[in-house]
Simulated assay, not measured.
Amino acid sequence: MATQPVTGVPGARIEISGVTKRFLTPSGEVFTAIKDVDFEVEPGQFCAVVGPTGCGKSTTLGLVSGLDKPSEGEVRVAGKKVDGISDGVSFMFQADALLPWKTVLGNVALGPSFRGVKKKEAEAQARDWLRRVGLAGFEDRHPHQLSGGMRKRVAMAAALINEPRILLMDEPFGALDVQTKAIMQTELIGLWEQLRPSVLFITHDLEEAVALADRVVVMTSSPGTIKAVFDIDLPRPRGAIQDIRFQPEFLELHRQIWESLREEVETAYARTAGVAA
């Protein structure tokens, strides 16, 4: 993991104001994914969003990235309305978004190459970032030759090499085993504390949200709205994520947020169970 400070572009403020997003279903009906969503992410802040399945968490990420547009309301990044794909935004998905025909080095060098950096310099930057995530020596491997955790390290290097103002993460560690997930969370925090992009992190794992974030946003069951916002006042740097979970302050924050989240999870489950019946 990186130990040297990185000088990057300061994180950008994210403002989501009165946002509603509707979709047409295959049957032609209108489905409201999120409704009247209001919250902010301060520059350089790590914000986690939790909520039951289908509450519109990933939809919200798509609106911030500019990959989609709200039906109502407005999303602003660094004071400017989002109208198309935003500059300075990196996206890390739950599923691997690596090109299987490219080497590890080639995948990580893509970002600088797209920005017009010459191949030699792009590869030098990629080598440096692979070192930062602990993959020096694996530059010539292809994604299928790596473990799940190693592929996540490649994806993280590819997301951070551009030193983004905003890092959007959609359950990036959801498919990993518990031990690998804890290691990746610790590595992410170490790199984020150096770059300090604004992070919008989607997760179903409440422990993960509390351990990583400065702020946790709880969304209601569909249509998703903001039920509560919790500031996480655990000190930074936080060190190993495995150790944070045993702190009394962590356990109390987890209890408070779960009390807010539990009702929404139960409501969402009851709704789907009713449909299944």
Rank of each mutant, 00 (worst) to 15 (best):
E207S: 14
A159T: 09
R13V: 02
V218A: 08
I244R: 11
P5D: 07
P43D: 01
R151G: 05
I241F: 08
P237T: 05
H204P: 10
L206E: 07
Q242R: 15
C55H: 01
P5E: 12
P43Y: 09
Q45C: 09
M156E: 02
G174L: 10
R262N: 13
M219F: 14
G56V: 01
V6H: 06
M92Y: 04
R153G: 10
A209Y: 05
G44F: 00
K152Y: 04
A126M: 10
R13S: 09
L24K: 15
M169Q: 02
A97Y: 04
K81N: 06
E266V: 15
F31D: 06
L105S: 11
Q94F: 06
P10S: 11
F138Y: 14
G66H: 08
F246P: 01
T32L: 04
E74T: 13
P112C: 06
D231E: 14
S221P: 04
I14W: 04
G149Y: 06
L63V: 02
G84H: 11
G88Q: 05
W101I: 09
I202R: 01
R262E: 15
T220C: 07
L110C: 03
A213C: 10
D36P: 12
A158M: 14
S17A: 14
L110E: 07
L200M: 13
A175Q: 12
H142D: 00
L135E: 02
E15L: 10
V30K: 02
E139A: 08
F230G: 00
T225E: 13
D140C: 01
D38S: 13
N162R: 12
E259M: 07
A211V: 14
